[in-house]
Amino acid sequence: MSAARRRWRKISNLVMLTCTGLCALLAVGAMVAILGFLVWKGAGALNWDFFANLPAPVGVPGGGMANAIVGTGKLLLLASLFGLPIGLLSGVYLAEFGSRPSSFVIRYVTDLLNGVPSIVIGIFAYAVIVLPMKTFSTLAGGFALGVMMIPIAVRSTEESLRTVPPGLREASEALGASRTTTVVRVVVPASFRAVLTGMMLALARVAGETAPLLFTAFGNNDWSSGWMRPIASLPVMIYNYAISPFRDWHRQAWAAGLVLLGLVLLANIAAKLLIGRAAEAEY
């Protein structure tokens, strides 16, 4: 190899390494910057009152977002109960049982659903639940979020199941197991971690959705009992507080953002720990 060629290789290597490294830094940097900003702007407004109290009128000290934190929890619970089972089972169908044409159609429609703007899903939930029931409700908000979770859960489940080596299915079927037994006892357990990670991803993805909640869950300055009343949620709270003219509320909006991020992170860590323990018990 000539000296010039060697030098050229070294230079191109250096350039590419710098490019990839810089981009990786930027990717991490975005997250760090968001987190830093939230802490910088919002940490000051975080105190016991924020977690324990209801929102207070402007100028009254000690207001909090307890109702929105609980509201977000309730909405996500409902969304998960609705969206995750449908997503999981459709994913299983796609990966294990679907014929070619039916899988194609389901996959295509799922991708379309994934691409539907969240505000449109909100209108849909408004039309099918809020209008007939004549009230904004937790149910409508949870339904809207649940619909948004479906495509994410479907595709992540499908992808996870597809990573299970075909040899495992063969081994199970060669022992006389039916297709269903094989899926339930071998394939799903083998990809359990990946499936649950996908579910967490779906949850995290919708936890911060605001648009579908605006005219479904609507918002509430008070506690909301049951499932048939308007309910407060962190994203909608952030939206309302952030566009208000009050400095006090702006700080609380930042704090709410921080709490929302923290909750998603916490749910993630808890799921990882749970999955880890379950997996350990199994092996």
Partner: peptide, 26 residues
Amino acid sequence: LRRRIGMVFQKPNPFPKSVFDNVAYG
């Protein structure tokens, strides 16, 4: 039929389970 005619494959393909659970599967 498959209980009466067992099969072992080219590549070892144990389940991602314990040794015991692998044998106990059938």
